[in-house]
Structure formats: structure tokens, C-alpha cells
């Protein structure tokens, strides 16, 4: 089916998120605007304006009432989804690289960049859905060996799981205030920086993507490596398709490494792999820059990719996709 091209950003996309019902699509890019779209037709619903720097991350709570964004202007902001009003600003020392609502919508986490003498940190704040927000974090986790690049909540918000620059994944007991007891488990899974970390729908396992050209499926409790997906290019993002046994990986040669203009050799395709058998099933072409972020609608009828080229492409799965079956 013909994809919908969303032209709402002037700079490379950094993250896109569907809301829980899959009808809204939130996109952030290195320009200062947060866009929200109707996912079924690509019509822009509105923007959230206020950030002063490149946006790195976005997340919406499961009721689609509150939106949280993290940006390079050293702030994370809370917005009212419906009105677009800015509800709160958290000031940090460095850029906020990743934000996420907890499962119960009562907490948020954000990961800050390591820069200008400040170490990378993971903050957890309590969110009061009706009233004012607190500026004192519930807990601050300070990764020791390598800076955290991405983080997510596990099922029941039991852990915070973070991916690090050195390719390791760590489970943090965020309810512990003692830094010594916070680390529950660390496993080195990748040879290079972890670029994305997304959880399955029930948050019982997760997928990581890395610059080492692989993506891995990991059990969120034991951190056992379940599956490995080998690609031929450095990966920027990976996601798990709910209800069907596929994963989508995205990436491509970094802009500095691309020598010619033809989109053929850039490897800018979204790649579909079978979740269990680990083999590549197909590719979807279209972008002319590396894919920075990929998201699947929680309903499972479409997926969207955001690229370095500044476009978001919303793809609806063809009927063939739902009919396709593996011989087992």
C-alpha cells in the first residue's frame, strides 16, 4: 500500500511514538517542534511548541492525556496532549536523550547525556496526573562504567532497563535508593553503542539495536539473549511487532560514510526479520537517509519510520502481510 509521507519536520527525525490506541502519532526531530498526527491519514493534528533545542525523545502516557519530551536545550517538558499546553519544565544539566512513562503512568524516567563534565544519569520523577509536578526526583541512577544511551521500564515497572554506550544492558532496581543495590544485573550484549531499546507489548522482553550491525532480543528478567538478528549495516532502531512474530530493524550508513547519492547503496531500508527464526523476510525502501527511528502501531496494522532525511513514512501492511505464513 502506498505509504503516507509526513512532511512536518525540517531536520532529521529522532523518535516517533504511537499512542496506546494507535490513532495518534507523535514525532520529534532535531528541529524544535513536536508534531502529532492522525496515523490513519497523516493529517497533522497539532504541534507542541516551546523547546529551544533539538528534540531527542517523546512519550505519551497510556491514556493519551500527557506527553513528555526531552531535548537538547537541557529540559524535559510535560504537555497536555489535548490542548498543547506546556504543564511543566524539568531543567537538567545536559541534554535529555530519552524519556518514557512508566506502565502505571505514575512515573517518568529520563536519560541525560554525558557532557561538559556532567555524567550521564537516569532520573525518575513522580507524575501527578491532576496537579503540580515535583522537581525533586524519586531516584537518580548513575551508570558507572559507560554512559546510558537508552532506557525503558520493565513489566510492572519492576526494573528500569538501560542500554549503554559500551554495548551492555543493565537492569536497575529503581526502588532502591542505595546506589550499590540498584544494579540488579549487567550483560554485555553488543560490541558497539546501543542505539535503541524497545520493549515488547507486555514488556517481558526487549529488543536492542546497535552500531555493531546486530539487533538482539533479550529477556527482561534474566537478560538472557533470546535471538540475534544480523544485518549488513549499523542499526539505529529496532522494534517488535505485537501479535505477529516479526521485528523491524532500521539503520543505514551514517551520512558521512555515504559516498554516492543513489539510495541503493545506503541501506536505508526498513528490514523485517522473523522474530523466532532470525531470518530476513523483506525490506521496505523509500527513505534517502538512514532510518533513525521505527515504531509499530499497537494495533498492529501499520508501522512508521523516521529518517535522517526529515521525513516520516507511515506504512499500512498489505493484506498479503496478514496472510503470509511460515511453513512449520
Amino acid at each position: 500500500m502506498r505509504p503516507i509521507l509526513l512532511q512536518g519536520h525540517t531536520r532529521p527525525l529522532t523518535q516517533i511514538k504511537y499512542n496506546n490506541e494507535g490513532d495518534l502519532l507523535f514525532t520529534v526531530a532535531k528541529d524544535t517542534v513536536v508534531n502529532v498526527w492522525y496515523s490513519h491519514n497523516g493529517e497533522r493534528l497539532g504541534t507542541y511548541e516551546g523547546h529551544q533545542g533539538a528534540l531527542w525523545s517523546v512519550d505519551v502516557n497510556s491514556k493519551s492525556t500527557l506527553l513528555i519530551t526531552g531535548a537538547a536545550d537541557n529540559t524535559a517538558r510535560l504537555w497536555d496532549v489535548k490542548t498543547g499546553k506546556q504543564l511543566h519544565v524539568w531543567k537538567t544539566n545536559t541534554a535529555v536523550k530519552r524519556v518514557e512513562f512508566s506502565c502505571d503512568n505514575k512515573h517518568i524516567l529520563f536519560v541525560t547525556e554525558k557532557r561538559m563534565g556532567f555524567e550521564s544519569e537516569i532520573y525518575v520523577f513522580r507524575i501527578d496526573e491532576s496537579g503540580t509536578q515535583s522537581d525533586t526526583p524519586v531516584v537518580v541512577i548513575r551508570p558507572k562504567d559507560s554512559k546510558a544511551t537508552v532506557a525503558a521500564w520493565s513489566y510492572f515497572d519492576k526494573y528500569i532497563v538501560a542500554g549503554h554506550e559500551d554495548g551492555s544492558v543493565t537492569l536497575y532496581n529503581w526502588r532502591e535508593s542505595d546506589p550499590e543495590k540498584q544494579i540488579s544485573k549487567t550483560v554485555k550484549v553488543h560490541q558497539d553503542t546501543i542505539t535503541d531499546l524497545q520493549t515488547s507489548k507486555d514488556r517481558s522482553y526487549l529488543i536492542t539495536s546497535s552500531k555493531d550491525k546486530t539487533a538482539q532480543l533479550i529477556d527482561i528478567e534474566t537478560l538472557d539473549l533470546l535471538k540475534l538478528y544480523q544485518s549488513d549495516t549499523s542499526l539505529n532502531t529496532a522494534t517488535i511487532i505485537p501479535d505477529r512474530d516479526y521485528v523491524i530493524l532500521g539503520g543505514g550508513q551514517a551520512a558521512s560514510e555515504v559516498t554516492t547519492t543513489s539510495s541503493h547503496q545506503g541501506k536505508f531500508e526498513s528490514r523485517f526479520y522473523h522474530e523466532v527464526f532470525e531470518n530476513e523476510i523483506g525490506r521496505v525502501r523509500g527513505h534517502f537517509g538512514p532510518i533513525n527511528t521505527v515504531a509499530v502501531s499497537p494495533v498492529g496494522d501499520s508501522f512508521s519510520t523516521g529518517s535522517e532525511d526529515g521525513y516520516v513514512r507511515v506504512h499500512f501492511f498489505d493484506p498479503d502481510y496478514f496472510k503470509y505464513k511460515f511453513d512449520v
Binding site: 497510556s62 513489566y155 510492572f156 507489548k201 507486555d202 499497537p298
Partner: peptide, 22 residues
């Protein structure tokens, strides 16, 4: 495992926890 945790958390927490959105 999820079943077990679900029990555990619902005992500790009187508030209902929406966990598995599926």
C-alpha cells in the same frame, strides 16, 4: 512469571495496575 508478579503487585497495591495492555 507475569501471572505471579500480577498477584504480587495487586496484593501490595490496592490500586489497580494496568499492566498488560493487550
Amino acid at each position: 512469571r507475569i501471572e505471579e508478579l500480577n498477584k504480587l503487585y495487586s496484593q501490595n497495591n490496592t490500586q489497580s495496575v494496568s499492566v498488560v495492555s493487550g
